[in-house]
Design a protein around this nucleic acid. Structure first.
Lengths: 240, 240
DNA sequence: CGCAGATTTGACTACGCTCAAACAACGTGG
DNA sequence: CCACGTTGTTTGAGCGTAGTCAAATCTGCG
């Protein structure tokens, strides 16, 4: 059995994120069994690595609080950002086919995670069909979100990408029951630029434009969406 | 039990692709159980759809022969190509979290597939741990290949993307035991352009250049790699 | 053979990048 | 708790890669 750490240790049964996470839809007895696997790690600070490329793959991580970016490095050492993970999201699934990680998971803010040892999770999953199908669902969603990411990169202009990104984050907050028109977003503009395959300069210019057009603002980590429909139109309009 | 169709119906146990597919590493008895689920569908012709967006999700498909592209359509009706699938590859995993497909799987050539009903596959998978972990592996690889795709799109120049693509295909053929420096590639240049987020004109110009530099040729569906290392260098060099 | 669709070639263009420099925000130590 | 240095953001000017548009040519299939 894994050691339990200090911090807020709500069991899966009491966790507010249970419907987004592995636990979704499990019976209470199965939930308790899942709960026994979970290693609630102590918080890590901004800049710390949850795992690095080359690390042995051993666990999946459910984000409990904070935010994590998933990155790799290209030949010329520049960071490639594959995604941002919020509370309830799972990180690590991209490594399940391999012995070692190929990506880096980095905390962008003080972050708390539940670690689930893969071997044990897989065993339990075999015994609990619903958990197994939940695993498949989570992985399938990860595939979709990656496909969606490429779609945005290839089909949309710089303005549309940024509008899309803000709406994506807004939707995530909404689905977690938070205010979705005003929220704290502790991501550097530089990282957003990178994720959207833009430069910080371009992001800055576009945010300026969005503000002038009263669509939204993003200052000091605080996003305020002033005209959601306007943003949505902008994001979805075909270029014509 | 599902109906069996005509055509070359080698059981999983006799299938040359078993190490790439679900069957990889299974014991003979489990292989036979897997075999019972498999519905070997009749061939579909070039242009036909294996599934369409909106279709109920019911099966995963293992490509037996031929080639399939996975696509969606953006707002302005243009095709977005997410990938090409060769014999041994699995299509459909992106839909496992949903009731209905969101993508289209289209045959680019006469294509034969094994259909595996998802419900039955999931059940068997629960009973056969190794099959379950093989499922996880396949899905994890799909996540990685999608991440790799975005990486190529964002990090590489037009020439590098094309070199990368040719090498990717070459590697796929190699891993299946075929000649990897000369192979038939029944994909339209237009589709490759689309997949790499380029225009057909750009692809045409670059192929011309590659030919002039004696790196490779691609004429009438036949790819010949003349200088593999040259291509590899080109693909991997950072831009500086 | 003929036609629709695919590819090639050429001239021109645009979107977002690069480079540079000023400015703002942050967090760290004295 | 403020000063300072580091890191992040903004603004401007000019540029380059790949896209666009158009027309010629090739290919494959009925």
């Amino acid at each position: 059995m894994t050691e339990k750490h200090s911090g807020f240790n709500a069991s899966c049964a009491k966790c507010a994120l249970q419907t987004i996470c592995f636990a979704n839809g499990l019976y209470e007895t199965d939930l308790d069994r899942l709960d026994e696997l979970v290693d609630r790690l102590p918080s890590i600070s901004k800049g710390e690595y949850l795992y690095s490329a080359g690390d042995e793959f051993s666990c999946l991580y459910a984000i409990r609080a904070g935010i994590v970016k998933l990155i790799s490095f290209s030949e010329d050492e520049t960071e490639v950002i594959h995604g941002f993970y919020l509370p309830g999201d799972i990180v690590g699934m991209e490594a399940m086919a391999y012995d070692a990680h190929e990506f880096y998971a980095v905390a962008l803010d003080t972050t708390t995670v539940c670690a689930l040892p893969y071997g044990q999770l897989a065993s339990l999953s075999s015994e609990v069909p619903h958990l197994n199908s939940q695993m498949f669902s989570l992985m399938s969603r990860e595939i979709m979100s990656s496909r969606l990411h490429s779609t945005i990169l290839t089909q949309k202009t710089a303005e549309q990408r940024l509008a899309d990104f803000i709406l994506l984050m807004s939707t995530k907050y909404k689905s977690r029951g938070y205010e979705h028109r005003q929220f704290r977003l502790n991501i550097l503009h530089r990282d957003v630029a990178n994720f959207l395959n833009l430069t910080p300069e371009t992001v800055s210019r576009i945010l300026g434009k969005f503000q002038k057009e009263a669509l939204m603002t993003w200052k000091k980590k605080e996003v305020i969406i002033k005209n959601e429909n306007g943003l949505r139109e902008l994001a979805n309009d075909s270029v014509e």
